[in-house]
């Protein structure tokens, strides 16, 4: 099943003459983990923000799990899209404990089911003992796991990750990559991951696309099988 379908997506920042993303089309199937590579400024983070509804496209269509989220006449607000996102700096709410951070996203669940879900997620990321801690009391790797757990807790149809490893020590990266892959597979999560590091993609992603700054639009990564389509 198709989880994400993007057709002819174009976006430009206000006042900018050249669009960051132009006529971009793209499909992701259920359970796939797709990497998006590219230099900074190439528009890869913008693509995530467009999928999540934090930016409004100039033209084109975005369909998430069979529902049109952005199109000529539709625009579904981010809170109603069912998309999870792990931010580059994690954005854990500094004034809430780990538990409250996770509970925050579960407001649509019946009251009784909320806390068990928190426990379940903490078990998944192996952080059960840290429920009462505050974000600033956690290490970078721990913060990342909590951010992941928080994003997965509401059972999103699609998970977006923006440079998930950029704030981590190089020697930690290897083990955390493996862990992440395991967690995502366990949860059978469809995931799009933005990164500038080829090794991330090789370790985790089933396939990848490359955003190039010079060309101004994405191209296929060589040597990887891809379902990428370009209309242009």
């Amino acid at each position: 099943m198709n989880i994400l379908t993007i057709q002819n997506l174009t976006f430009s920042f206000p006042k900018a003459r050249v669009p960051v993303i132009e006529n971009f089309s793209f499909r992701v199937d259920e359970g796939e983990i797709v990497g998006i590579l590219g230099q900074s400024g190439s528009g890869k983070s913008t693509l995530l923000r467009l999928i999540s509804g934090l930016e409004i496209p100039r033209s084109g269509r975005i369909e998430i799990a069979g529902t049109e989220s952005a199109g000529e006449k539709t625009f579904v607000q981010p809170e109603d899209r069912g998309v999870g996102m792990v931010f580059q700096d994690y954005a854990l709410f500094p004034h809430m404990s780990v538990k409250d951070n996770l509970l925050f996203g579960l407001s649509r669940l019946p009251r009784k089911e909320r806390y068990p879900r928190v426990r379940e997620m903490l078990e998944l990321v192996q952080m059960t003992d840290y429920e009462k801690r505050y974000p600033h009391e956690l290490s970078g790797g721990q913060q990342q796991r909590i951010a992941l757990a928080r994003a997965l807790a509401p059972k999103p149809k699609l998970l977006l990750m923006d440079e998930p490893f950029s704030n981590l020590d190089a020697n930690l990266k290897g083990s955390i990559r493996d862990e992440l892959l395991m967690i995502l597979k366990k949860a059978n999560m469809t995931c799009i991951m933005v990164t500038h590091d080829k090794e991330d993609v090789e370790a985790i992603c089933g396939r990848s696309i490359v955003f190039g700054k010079a060309e101004g639009r994405p191209s296929e990564a060589p040597g990887k099988e891809s379902k990428l389509t370009f209309v242009r």
Partner: peptide, 8 residues
Amino acid sequence: ENARLLGR
């Protein structure tokens, strides 16, 4: 933005 993505 995170709070919105978490459905609030």
